[in-house]
Design a protein around this nucleic acid. Structure first.
Lengths: 216, 216
DNA sequence: CGGGAAACGGTCAGAGGAGACCGCTATTGT
DNA sequence: ACAATAGCGGTCTCCTCTGACCGTTTCCCG
């Protein structure tokens, strides 16, 4: 629903299809509200009522688009994953990488960049659904394929950032998923301890391990 | 409450203090039931009623010991962390490590062992509370110090397993937390995709990275 | 050995949430 | 032009959960 082929730039309400537009707006409003609620209240305290209030829509309007809470949350999961896929292309970052004086510094820049993605609020929204999916089969079934696609995209993204030189190193293959999962595991601890992620001690360790493995 | 100094081995109901014993039994029954419910139903669907039913106690009995759901879950968090601290001392594992023909094989055995701890059900119970604590300040305050203590214990445990030789290597310090967090991050993905953890592809990668970093 | 409190068992009221339901309006295909 | 219907606003009911609030039993301690 976020990437229908026939929609590119519609800032003003295109009168071509007011009906379909309003529908899309409804869904979008509700899904964004769902994400907001997941972030603010957590999965357990996220009710259809709070989502409806946050979205500023009537109960009828919401229930017409999403016939049940389960259906809504599944859509929200897709919504979040889609948003992560259409990632905020690291524009200024390409320059930083280009400026890197060597592979060692490039590694440092890339690690910083990857770690930054775990500070995005969508990470927590995804985590809430992720953990809940363990005991919610319908959610799990929705997340499984989406997560696979996202994983692929992230791997490609990492390859782009590191560049063909580093990607070609023999230890790159094991380093990539270890960095990836280590960051996720580390980010989790910020749940109950919201310190400044820029001072994360592991940042130096990730760089050190990566340097050692890739620049032996 | 799980480690009062005056209790060591009470297998039979010591008649010295039947009152206190029954109290302890009440708390223990309820806390165990809470963990069971967290595992089976997840945080969101865990109610005081389901816990009470699972524990097989009356509402009065439960509410007398834990005056509110919040207080109960905080106690459950401590219960889980305490259980993880009194870890199931890897008895037969010490032999396996001793049998390791060299540091390379020792690394493999230790990695396998560490990964095994993430298959314990208590991991998921802790994760449910962990994630919930992000939006539940009281839980977070309870988990924060407990997690710090557990982290220390795990680090010591890892040092013991790897042995002074490997611990002394220059890259051990960064490798240790990276392995630790990477496993946590990896284990999380089993929430929606319950495959066989023994075939986890990252197992080989962890060993490879560790070997390369510690046995350069 | 008796008063008192701890430790219950069981019920109740109140709040909140999920989704069914009904009626209305504007769009849309023909 | 017009009936059909998607899209919606608002309400209402049923259910679940929480914690309060009884009453009752049992142990403890002077």
């Amino acid at each position: 629903m976020t990437m229908t082929p026939a929609a590119a730039a519609d800032s003003e309400p295109a009168r071509g299809r007011p009906r379909a537009d309003r529908t899309r707006e409804s869904r979008s409003r509700v899904l964004d509200a769902a994400v907001t609620c997941l972030l603010r209240d957590g999965y357990a305290r996220t009710s259809t009522i709070s989502i409806q209030a946050e979205a500023g829509v009537s109960r009828g309007r919401m229930l017409h688009q999403f016939r049940s809470k389960e259906e809504l949350l599944v859509a929200a999961a897709h919504h979040i994953f889609a948003a992560q896929l259409e990632a905020p292309i690291p524009g200024s970052l390409t320059e930083l990488i280009a400026e890197a004086s060597g592979p060692g510094e490039r590694i440092a820049v890339v690690v910083d960049c990857l770690w930054a993605t775990y500070q995005e609020p969508s990470f927590w929204a995804a985590t809430e659904l992720w953990v809940a999916s363990r005991t919610e089969p319908v959610l799990a079934e929705a997340i499984r394929p989406a997560e696979r696609r996202l994983g692929r995209a992230i791997r490609e993204r990492m390859d782009d950032l590191f560049g063909p030189d580093l990607v070609g190193r023999p230890l790159y293959l094991p380093i990539r998923p270890v960095l990836f999962t280590s960051m996720r595991g580390t980010a989790l601890s910020y749940a109950f301890d919201a310190r400044d992620p820029r001072t994360e001690p592991l940042l130096e360790h990730w760089k050190e391990i990566a340097r050692h493995a890739l620049l032996a």
